[in-house]
Design a binder for these strands. Structure first.
Lengths: 114, 114
DNA sequence: AAATGTGTTGACATTCAACTCAACTTATGT
DNA sequence: ACATAAGTTGAGTTGAATGTCAACACATTT
């Protein structure tokens, strides 16, 4: 399981779409030199919301890149942090160290809720 | 439902255990004047990890105090944010804007998992 | 009353995230 | 070879989070 860095992964994705750093940067609203640094791991990964914008420009879902950074997009974070019951749920879940399958089960049950 | 502030709640808890600000502070690893400010709402609530330490010293579960803040302990945050499946669950949940009852139901189902 | 323990306040400090800006280098097309 | 496009690098900025330190006030004990 050779884990690539966030920067390398981003660089590959961007190139595969034939987009320059400048194009990506201006679409996202940051300086292109910042993209360069991120791609070369000179800086930590961007804020979650910036990652989401990057993925929009690249036309891909943000899940993979987000998961590499241990960051959460603002809407998700707020939805959770404003709700004590949700927090309770997450603390339980964490202390149980759920498997992926179990998370999947919960997602199913979540959908059945409506 | 008269909601007490974090500071007031902490002050009551600490006093009920007969602990001074200095004792608590040194057990937690912060300056006692910081505890004072938090108790008097001169500062925002401490970092989640600090709250956990406070509760350890007080001999109580951190849930109640944590729930009063919008913060999540590092282990919890990391466990969910580095797991794509968990993130997917959260994105779903967030987009559905679950009620407290629904979160409660999920917590029940979570416990039934084992 | 003096000493000691406890609490409060204002000003300042540190760390980190998340960048920007200007200058430079390298690669590419004509 | 030259111009232009693309990428890299160093230094500095801004703001939020999370505190520290010194000075003082109040309360309690001896």
């Amino acid at each position: 399981m050779e884990t690539k860095t966030f920067g390398q992964t981003l660089k590959n994705l961007r190139r595969s779409k034939g987009i320059t750093q400048r194009e990506l940067a201006s679409a996202v609203g940051v300086d292109f030199s910042y993209i360069s640094k991120v791609e070369n791991n000179r800086m930590p990964a961007p804020a979650a919301d910036t990652i989401v914008k990057i993925c929009e420009k690249l036309g891909i879902p943000p899940d993979k890149l987000l998961a590499m950074t241990r960051k959460m997009p603002t809407p998700v974070k707020e939805a959770i942090s404003e709700n004590p019951v949700a927090q309770q749920f997450l603390r339980e879940a964490q202390s149980m160290t759920l498997t992926d399958d179990e998370w999947g089960t919960l997602t199913q049950q979540l959908k059945k809720l409506r």
